[in-house]
Deep mutational scan, measured.
Amino acid sequence: MIINNLKLIREKKKISQSELAALLEVSRQTINGIEKNKYNASLQLALKIAYYLNTPLEDIFQWQ
């Protein structure tokens, strides 16, 4: 199981879903879906999320 901390980290950094989506060149709905565990981010997208949030990938998506 993967624990998804994207919403928590994004909100801590005061970045909206729309802002993050624009940086990543995806839709806001994609970010929303990832945060609600409706969609799994591809490895490429997960790495981009970590880069733009300046946060280690394993802090955003944790295996349990």
Rank of each mutant, 00 (worst) to 15 (best):
L23Y: 14
K7F: 06
K13D: 02
F61N: 01
T55W: 04
I34Y: 02
Q17A: 06
M1W: 10
I60P: 01
A46C: 15
A50I: 03
K13N: 11
S42A: 04
A50H: 02
E35K: 02
G33M: 15
L6Y: 01
L6H: 00
Q64F: 05
Q29A: 14
I31K: 02
N40Q: 14
I9N: 02
S27P: 15
K48Q: 08
I15T: 04
K7R: 12
N4D: 03
N4I: 08
V26F: 01
E25T: 08
D59N: 10
S42T: 12
W63C: 12
Y52S: 06
E19N: 10
K36P: 02
A41V: 15
E11N: 09
F61M: 02
N5M: 06
S27H: 06
A50F: 04
L47V: 13
S42G: 10
D59I: 08
Q44V: 11
N32Y: 12
L57T: 05
I2C: 15
S27N: 09
S18C: 14
N5F: 07
L53R: 01
E19H: 12
Q29F: 08
I34V: 05
E35G: 01
I49G: 00
I34H: 02
I49E: 00
E11H: 07
L6G: 03
R28I: 15
L47E: 14
K38Y: 12
M1V: 11
E25Q: 15
I31C: 03
K38R: 13
N5D: 04
N54D: 15
A50C: 08
T30E: 08
I9H: 07
Y51S: 09
L57E: 02
N32G: 08
L47R: 13
Y39V: 15
K48S: 07
L6C: 07
I9C: 08
L53S: 04
F61I: 03
I15L: 12
I31V: 12
L57H: 03
K38N: 09
L8Q: 15
K36E: 15
M1N: 08
I2R: 09
G33H: 12
A46Q: 11
S42Y: 04
Y51E: 10
W63L: 08
Y39H: 11
Q17T: 08
R10G: 02
E58D: 13
N37V: 02
N40R: 14
N37M: 09
K7L: 08
Q44E: 15
I31F: 03
P56S: 07
K48H: 05
N40Y: 11
I2F: 12
I34G: 00
N54Y: 05
E11R: 10
S16E: 04
A50K: 03
Q62A: 10
A41I: 15
R10Y: 04
L23H: 13
P56Q: 05
E35Q: 04
I15M: 15
L47T: 13
A21I: 04
L6D: 02
E35V: 02
W63T: 07
I60H: 01
E58H: 13
L47D: 05
L57W: 04
R10A: 03
K12L: 12
Q44P: 13
S18A: 14
I2G: 05
L6K: 00
N32H: 11
L43N: 07
K48V: 03
T55Q: 05
W63V: 07
Y51H: 13
Q62N: 07
Q44I: 10
Y39F: 15
Q29H: 14
A22N: 11
F61V: 02
I31L: 13
Y51P: 00
I9L: 08
R28S: 12
T30L: 15
L53Q: 02
I49M: 06
E58K: 12
Q17Y: 04
K36R: 13
S16W: 06
I9Q: 05
S18N: 11
I3V: 14
D59A: 10
S27C: 08
L53E: 01
V26D: 00
G33W: 10
K36V: 10
L8P: 09
K12E: 13
